[in-house]
Amino acid sequence: MKKITGPDLCHCLAARRNARYLTRFYDRHLAAAGLSVSQFSLLAMLAEHSDISISDLTEIMVMERTTLVRALKPLQSAGFIHSRVEGPRSALRLSLSAEGQAKIEHAQPYWDSAQEELEEQIGVDRAIAIRASLLAVVPGI
């Protein structure tokens, strides 16, 4: 194993480099479905958490609200997401539309292919351990 020195000692830099690599990797697979991995993840999260407030979604996704709103716009324009305002504080609530559910179902095999290829590259046990390790760092997950 290569000796790690300098900037490579930074845990954050290592995680961000890994995130960029994985984003490109999954985007390559999901391109056939017309989605990025970020878009797929948002749709999948909405499928899992129906009628979620945008505030709760920002917490689950660990994203800034403005970044999340920007990421949601093309999905809303495509008709994949329904939004409604509710309550005295005008809370924005989001849900997956039928078109969004169909898009997830169409994209799922491409995502599955990315998962399988990654697990072939690094091994299933290692992939599971890496995911668990990364999720353990995020409070509340």
Rank of each mutant, 00 (worst) to 15 (best):
F25P: 04
V124N: 11
Y110N: 11
S36D: 06
S133Y: 07
A71N: 09
E117T: 13
F80R: 01
V137Q: 12
Q76R: 09
V62W: 13
C10R: 14
I81W: 01
L94P: 00
M63D: 02
Y21R: 04
T66F: 03
R126C: 04
P88F: 04
D112H: 14
A32V: 09
P7I: 15
E59R: 15
N18Y: 13
D51H: 07
P88S: 07
S50V: 03
G87E: 02
L9T: 10
D27G: 02
A78R: 10
E117C: 09
W111K: 08
L9M: 14
H49N: 15
H29Q: 11
G100P: 09
R20P: 06
A31H: 05
R24V: 12
I104P: 00
M45H: 05
E64A: 05
I141N: 07
A78K: 12
S83V: 08
G100K: 08
P88C: 06
A132L: 07
Y21V: 05
L134Q: 11
H49P: 13
T23M: 12
D51R: 03
R70W: 03
S55F: 06
R84C: 12
G87W: 02
G79R: 04
H106M: 05
V85Q: 10
R89D: 15
I130R: 03
R126Y: 05
D8M: 13
L118G: 05
C12A: 04
A33D: 06
G79M: 04
I141Q: 09
P109W: 11
T58M: 01
R84N: 14
L57W: 00
R70L: 03
K3R: 14
P7L: 15
R84Y: 12
Y21H: 07
S97L: 06
I52V: 10
V137P: 03
Y21S: 08
Y110K: 12
V85S: 11
S77Q: 14
G34A: 05
H11E: 08
V85E: 10
H49G: 09
G34L: 06
T5A: 11
P109Y: 06
E64Y: 01
S38D: 13
A98M: 05
R84L: 13
L68F: 03
V62M: 14
R28N: 15
L46I: 03
Y26M: 14
A14Q: 14
R65D: 00
P7V: 15
H29W: 11
L9R: 15
Y26W: 10
S113Y: 02
S83M: 08
A15R: 11
Y21Q: 07
P139K: 05
A31G: 10
P74K: 06
G123I: 02
A114R: 00
A44P: 05
E119M: 10
S77P: 04
I141W: 06
H82A: 14
V138M: 07
K73L: 04
R24S: 15
L72A: 02
A114Q: 03
S53M: 01
E99Q: 11
I52P: 00
R126K: 12
A129P: 01
T5R: 15
H106L: 13
R70I: 02
S38C: 08
L96C: 06
A47K: 15
E120P: 09
G6H: 09
R89N: 15
I104N: 02
V85M: 11
S50F: 08
L92F: 09
G100N: 10
L43H: 01
Y26G: 04
A32H: 13
